[in-house]
Amino acid sequence: MDLLTLFWIFLKVNLLSVSGLASIGLLHHEVVGRWLSDEQFTQAVSFASILPGSDALQLAMFIGIRAHGIAGAWIALLGSLLPPTVLMLGVVLLLYRLRREAWISSFVEGLTPAVAVLMLSVAWKLLQPALSLDWRVILLALGSWLALRSNLPPAAVLLASGLAGILLYR
């Protein structure tokens, strides 16, 4: 049943990720091809990064609507909200004690390279047109890199890139 799968996916992804952006590796694998095209996934992540507020919730909303309309949005939202709230109810006390245990921080240290690699694989997919030497992609990538390095706000950089795209791809 679609709604159940949707719930489970967002629950899983939010248990294994510490931030909205970190979750995109797993999310991409789960939802692209099933409910979203690559292009729509890009839109989801972009708008989640541009709009203020929790990225994780925004991704849940966008993808949820695509998958199953308003019901999908609620379900995905619930799945994303559950890990932090359920944990708070009792398990969080346990984790607080375990925090001093070496193995918890080692586990997180192990997760880190895997998450980074997954994130890079999504970034790679997004940049693939650059390989066919599409000068526009290269230009936009270089421009954004310089802008982000100079600490311009990410939301503004993304918006600017999108607007430039409207002009470049006419």
Binding site: S49, L126, W145, A164
Partner: peptide, 28 residues
């Protein structure tokens, strides 16, 4: 067409943003 252009335009910027975030995650 303009939504298409917008999405294609945003993709490289997003990729760079993600790559930078991935680097931050990795080196923590």
């Amino acid at each position: 067409p303009w939504m298409r252009g917008f999405t294609r335009g945003i993709a490289p910027a997003l990729a760079i943003l993600i790559a930078m975030a991935a680097w931050k995650v990795f080196h923590n």
